Amino acid sequence: MESKIVFKDVSLEFDDHQNKGATFKELFANAFTLNNKEKNKHKRTVLNAINIEIKHGERLGIVGRNGAGKSTFLKTLCKIYEPSAGKITIQGNVAPLLEIGAGFNPELSGRENIYLNGAILGHDMSELKKLEAEIIDFAELNEYIDTPVKYYSTGMYLKLAFSIATAIKPEILVLDELFAGGDAEFVAKAKKRMENFIAESSIMVFVSHQLDLLQELCTRVIWIDKGKIIADGEPEAIIDLYLNKEAHD
C-alpha cells in the first residue's frame, strides 16, 4: 500500500481563555456563565480550512514566519491535536520528530530511553533489542549511553532522538527544525539517512527556517501564514515568493 496524507477542510481553534491558567472551578463556572458570543471572543483559529494531499514519495517542506501555524500543522498531522473541523486521512505509519527529547525520561539513561521512546513510537521490545547497538552507534553516544539523559547536551538529545525515530524506516517521517543545534558531521549523516528513506518512496514532511536545506531536500514546498496555505509548488518558486513577501513587510 502506498503512503498518503489528505487534509480535507481541516481547521483548528484554540481557546485562549482556557489556556490562561484557569482553575477547574473557573472553567466549570465559565461553561455556564459565558454566552456563545463571549466564548467565541476567546477562540483563536490556528489552522483555517486546510486542504492538501501529500503523495507517496513526496518530500514536503513548509515555510512561514513564527506563529504562522507550521508546527501546529505538524502536530495535527501527528494526532497530537484533534481538528476542530474537517478530516485527516493517513495511509502509512508516522514517525514524528517534533521536539528534541520529547518522550524521554530525564532520570533514565540513554539506553533505557531507547526502549521507552521506541515503545512510544510503536516498536516492540524484540525489535528494539535488535536495533539497540545500531541506534547507539549512529547516535555516537557509546561513552554516554548509560548516563541519565538529564546530563545530555541539546546535541546529544538530538542525536539520540533522531536515531531512535529513524531506526525502523517509517513510511511517513515528520520533522520540525531537526538540525537546529546539530554538529556538521551528524547533520551530514542525518541528511544521508533521510535521503535513503526518500529513495524508498516514503513521505517526508519537514518544517525549517533553513531555506537552503528545504530547497536541497524537498520536492515540494507550501507556505503557511495565519493558519492558511498561501502557496504550494516547486521549492525554489515558493521560497522566492515567501522571501519577497517578507522583504516587503
Rank of each mutant, 00 (worst) to 15 (best):
A165G: 15
N51E: 02
S71H: 04
E112Y: 02
E82W: 00
L160S: 12
E134F: 07
I90M: 03
N36W: 00
E26A: 03
A29T: 10
F104S: 04
K55E: 12
S109A: 07
I120G: 01
K41P: 00
E127W: 04
V46E: 00
K79T: 13
N35P: 02
N142E: 13
G61A: 12
I100S: 15
N93R: 15
D146V: 11
L27Y: 01
P148D: 10
L121V: 01
I100M: 15
S71Q: 06
K150I: 06
L121Q: 04
I54K: 10
L74E: 09
K130W: 01
G103I: 01
L116S: 04
N36Q: 13
K55W: 01
R111F: 07
E134Y: 09
L77D: 10
E53C: 06
T76Q: 05
G64D: 02
K129A: 08
E140C: 06
L121P: 02
I50D: 03
A139K: 12
K79V: 01
G64Q: 00
A165V: 07
K79N: 14
I50R: 02
G61D: 12
N36D: 15
G92R: 09
I120E: 05
G67V: 06
I54S: 05
I52Y: 11
L158E: 07
L131S: 13
N66K: 07
G118H: 03
I136D: 14
T147R: 14
G103Q: 04
R59T: 15
C78W: 03
E38I: 00
Y157D: 09
E58S: 04
I52F: 10
Y115S: 01
I50C: 07
A49M: 00
L131Y: 11
E140Q: 15
A161H: 05
T154H: 14
I62T: 09
R59A: 15
Y157K: 11
K150N: 09
S71D: 08
S126I: 08
L108A: 01
G67P: 07
K70D: 12
G86I: 06
T166C: 07
T45W: 02
I100R: 14
G101C: 11
N113T: 08
M125R: 15
K43E: 00
S109D: 10
K79S: 14
V94T: 11
K70N: 11
E132N: 11
V94G: 08
Y115H: 08
T45N: 00
P148F: 06
